[in-house]
Each structure stands twice: as structure tokens, then as C-alpha cells.
Amino acid sequence: MRKLLSVLLAGALVLGTLTGCGSSSDTDATKNSTNTESSSTGESSDSKVIKVAASATPHGEILEQAKKILKDKGYDLQVTIFDDYVQPNQVVESDEFDANYFQHEPYLDSFNEEKGTHLVNAGGIHYEPFGIYPGTKKDLKDIADGDSIAVPNDTTNEARALLLLQDNGIITLKEGAGLNATVNDIIENPHNVKIVELEAAQVARVVDETAFVVLNGNYALQAGYKVSKDALAYETSDSEAAKTYVNIIAVKEGNEENEGVKALVEVLKSDDIKNYINETYDGAVIPFE
């Protein structure tokens, strides 16, 4: 019996030495997510694990391309897909994941302030032009009194949506509202448009109920839209908003120089990944230089 116990303890110690960047613990938060982690089959026993939480489109798709390159560098990139904007930050804060890839820095800053988390930007990867897309109406010229327009309801993305509506003459915001704008900052609304505030993932689902919808780039892609073809108006690449809302790799403060994180960022900013982005997303996703 003692001999058997010694063998089991030795096995446990060996297993403990195989962990890499990622935490060995699992999280209940991933129960409602789709796990796309790579199988251990065919992986080197000494590969270093990088665990990343991500949105499905385009982040998860881009990471799948990075996975192949990172494997050649000795890393096992494991990606878990989440369908909300809260859990990916929580699992990085708790050290259950090494990084996440789904958000821009203004959202990260707002989340840290509201939730007391300690997450930082480890590298900017791409930006996604915000766009106004057709709902029950197909042309902004057809807007009429009392029409409704759906926008994301989180702090930073709502401001971005409202600024785009202002740029297209639908509303006017009070001077200085900028990236903190809310519906309370609307001072002119000539068509008495009703702004319908929804969780970002829900906006595309009301296209049959609202005249127009204003979508984040990733949710536009998930809904089957293409910026160049379907957007009635969108942020230009040189706009302040586009530059401000670069999607980043976020990590817990202190992990920016982790070798796995640095390798991940380096690969995501490589020419191979830039070419993939440009060839795949038709202007809906643009690499950040």
C-alpha cells in the first residue's frame, strides 16, 4: 500500500511540472461558453500552454490562425469562446486564463473602474469600424418621425454609436460629450428617434423591430454583415473613434512581460496574421499598426 501511495504521489508531482503559462484550474464561468481548446493529441509533452478567453468572431477565428504559428514556437494556444463581455475579464483577473482578446481599451478601463479589476493592455491587434446597418428600413434617407434605432448599452460602445449617429445628422450631442456620451447628452433629435439600448450581443437580433441598428464590428460579422457591402455608414479608418477603439490582448497587471503573452502578441501582429485579417474580413476588421 505504501509503495502504491508513493507511485501516485510521484505521478502527481510530475504532472505539476508540466504546466506552462496557463493555470491548471478550471472555471465554472466557462460552462456557458463554447470551448475550442486544442486536443492534447499530437502536442509535444513539453509545450507551453497559453490560455486565452475570446469572442467568437473575429477574435476566436484570428486566434485559430495564430495557434498554428505558436505551435511551431513550442506553445499550445488554448482558446475558450465566451458570448458575453464580463466573464472573459473575470477569468483573467482570477488567473484562470492568461489573457483575453475581445475588447478595446476604453471598455477595459471602464470595467476596471466599475469592477475593481486589475487588467492592462498587453498589445493592440486590430480595430473594427462601427457601422449603422439596415433594420426595417434600408436607407438613412428614409428615416421618419418616431423611428427607433438600436445601439449597444455599455458605456463606451453606446457613446461610439451615438457619435456615429451624430456624424450622419440623425442626432446632435451636447458639446464635449465625446466618448462619454449617453442618450442624456442628446440635445437635438429632429425626427424624435427612439434610441433602444440593448446589450451588445442583442442588437443584431432586433433588425426586424427597429429602423436601423448600430453594431460593433464583431457582432456585425456574426450577423452576416459586411462593412463594405451592408453598412449604411461607418467609421473611417482615420477617425478618432477607430484609433481609440483598437481591440487588445488584455492580461492581469504584472503579466505583460510573460513570455507566452509576448509570443502571442508578436504572432498576432505578424504579417501572416495581418494578411489573414485583410483577406478574410473585407474591411470589417483592420490590423492595427
Results as ranks from 00 to 15, higher is better:
P58G: 11
I62F: 08
S33W: 06
T210S: 11
V7I: 15
L268Q: 00
D145E: 15
S110L: 05
E188K: 12
F111N: 06
K31G: 15
V267I: 13
N157Q: 02
N168K: 03
Y133V: 02
P106I: 01
H126E: 02
L264A: 09
D185I: 10
E61N: 15
N100Y: 13
E37D: 10
A56C: 12
F288G: 00
V207E: 15
F111T: 02
H118G: 07
N247H: 15
V52W: 03
D109F: 05
Y245N: 10
D185L: 06
D98K: 09
L173R: 07
K115H: 10
A99P: 12
Q222P: 00
L13Q: 06
D98W: 00
I186M: 03
G22P: 00
A220I: 01
S38I: 13
Y219V: 07
V7N: 03
K252R: 10
G131K: 01
F97V: 03
G135E: 05
V193S: 05
A12W: 09
L63H: 06
E240V: 07
D26T: 11
F82N: 01
E96F: 02
I195L: 05
V86T: 06
Y101M: 15
R205T: 14
E197D: 00
P129A: 04
L119W: 06
L18K: 14
S237A: 15
I132P: 08
L108N: 09
G123I: 05
G224W: 01
I187G: 06
E43D: 03
K274M: 09
S25A: 14
V183I: 15
K48S: 13
Y281V: 08
R205E: 15
T156V: 05
K3Q: 15
D109L: 10
L268V: 11
P129I: 03
E266W: 03
P58N: 12
L9N: 05
Q222V: 11
D230Y: 06
